[in-house]
């Protein structure tokens, strides 16, 4: 997670660096620390440091870290020749290094030579079966080839060992959703909620999945999670507000004719409708009529 102060610092440095104000190295360090994807900027500013022998040597041993960072950024931008040159420099310095070997394998991957990259990664894994980065690369490779089910299989294998890695769970959840395997995705989102219970994002995604699954019980649960999202975001999440309305109407359609157990639940919905209308009035008045009719349709059908 990026905290607010870090974000501010990053924006300040980014502005400064873009306008040629120096401190490029500090900016690159921050990007690396926060694991952000700013490949183009990293490539530009990193190369400008690397091409200047004086600046480069002033970094000391950090020079090689910068090389690595630039290689990855260059591959992300498809400047494969730049990446290749940098890898050559690194190779000269660290001939036997596995870390450089990994970069080479990534270059193969970037060129689309899947089989060779796969071979390289497999041999790395034989040496060190608990290398998280290589496991993740293999998942990414399967995904890049469009082999989603293969990626899922590899991720599952990875999660068998590193089961507390919530980023992996999130990736798996999204993969399952893309294959419309909602039950499995729901499990992953439960896992994410467990690991970070106060993050509304996962509550919302979980509710979405449950709503898509359908069925009375799931809908009721989904509604609760939409409610918790509203609570955690302070009612600012439009999707959750719509979700509440949709869930309520779906539930009432399912329970039509049966005994009306809880009347009070509709209150959340009416409140959500009011908040939505207010929001649209403020921010997008031209769309207000559409929203009102859509919401009316929902309440009428219930």
């Amino acid at each position: 997670m990026v905290t607010k102060t870090e974000d501010n610092q990053l924006n300040r440095l980014e502005n400064q660096v873009d306008n040629g104000g120096g401190e490029a190295w500090e900016y690159l360090c921050l990007v690396r620390k926060l694991k952000l994807r700013r490949s183009e900027k990293v490539l530009r500013h990193g190369l400008s440091i690397l091409n200047d022998p004086k600046k480069r040597s002033s970094l000391g041993p950090d020079e090689w870290t910068l090389y690595e960072q630039v290689v990855v950024a260059a591959m992300d931008c498809q400047h494969l020749d730049v990446a290749k040159d940098c890898i050559k420099v690194l190779q000269k310095r660290f001939p036997e290094s596995k870390r450089v070997g990994r970069l080479e394998a990534m270059l193969l991957e970037a060129k689309g030579l899947w089989d060779e990259a796969e071979k390289a990664y497999t041999s790395f894994l034989e040496d060190n079966p608990v290398d998280q980065i290589i496991h993740k690369r293999r998942v990414a490779m399967a995904k890049a080839q469009g082999n989603i089910s293969g990626a899922i299989e590899r991720l599952n294998k990875y999660l068998e060992i590193f089961m507390a890695d919530h980023d992996a769970w999130r990736e798996l959840a999204e993969l399952y959703v893309s294959l419309q395997m909602y039950k499995q995705a729901a499990f992953c989102y439960e896992e994410l909620i467990i690991s970070q219970p106060t993050l509304p994002l996962f509550h919302l995604a979980y509710a979405d999945v449950l709503y898509t699954l359908g069925g009375l019980e799931n809908l009721q649960t989904a509604k609760k999670y939409y409610a918790s999202t509203i609570d955690l975001t302070g009612g600012k999440n439009t999707r959750a507000l719509f979700g509440i309305c949709l869930c309520t109407s779906a539930i009432s359609q399912l329970t039509k004719g049966k005994s009306k157990e809880d009347k009070d639940k509709s209150q959340v919905q009416s409140l959500a409708v009011k908040v939505l209308e207010k929001d649209y009035k403020q921010r997008a008045p031209d769309k207000l009529p559409q929203v009102t009719t859509a919401l009316k349709g929902l309440t009428l059908s219930s």
Binding site: A227, S228, I230, I244, K265, V275
Partner: peptide, 11 residues
């Protein structure tokens, strides 16, 4: 949370 959401929305 449903009650809490209600109070949030009411506000």
């Amino acid at each position: 949370f449903e009650q809490r959401a209600e109070t949030v929305l009411k506000k």
